[in-house]
């Protein structure tokens, strides 16, 4: 879980922009080359690069080179946070159903 306040600020800051959120969503589904990422937006490649730098600084994405292309994917940290979240979400529901069970027994 991202706990350090500076990192949290970086993440929140990076997510405050709709284009960056959209980039993250798409990259979250599968890794994409920088040119593929830039395609749907009506902005320059330089503008996209700026977005990617911010996301990378926030440790939300990783970039690696594949031949001539730069490929972007969700970072392991981001993935770990997401699965951690899922785990806690499940726990909330499991506990909720535990309480329902106890309640039904009590109220028999």
């Amino acid at each position: 879980m991202v706990e350090h306040t500076q990192t949290l600020d970086a993440v929140f800051g990076s997510l405050a922009d709709p284009t960056r959120r959209d980039i993250l969503k798409r990259v979250g589904r599968k890794e994409l080359s920088v040119s593929k990422i830039a395609k749907p937006y009506n902005v320059t490649l330089a503008a996209i690069s700026k977005h990617l730098i911010i996301l990378e600084k926030a440790k939300l994405i990783n970039k690696h080179r594949r031949g001539k292309q730069q490929v972007v994917r969700l970072s392991p940290t981001a993935l770990k946070d997401a699965s951690e979240y899922l785990r806690r979400y499940r726990k909330i529901w499991e506990e909720r159903l535990d309480r329902l069970e106890v309640y039904l027994i009590k109220k028999k």
Binding site: V11, R29, A82, Y85
Partner: peptide, 18 residues
């Protein structure tokens, strides 16, 4: 059966995990 977030995997969950 409960979905953890609105649509796309990963990112929404991260956002909301904070």
């Amino acid at each position: 059966i409960t979905s953890a977030a609105g649509d796309a995997p990963g990112t929404d969950m991260m956002l909301q995990g904070m």
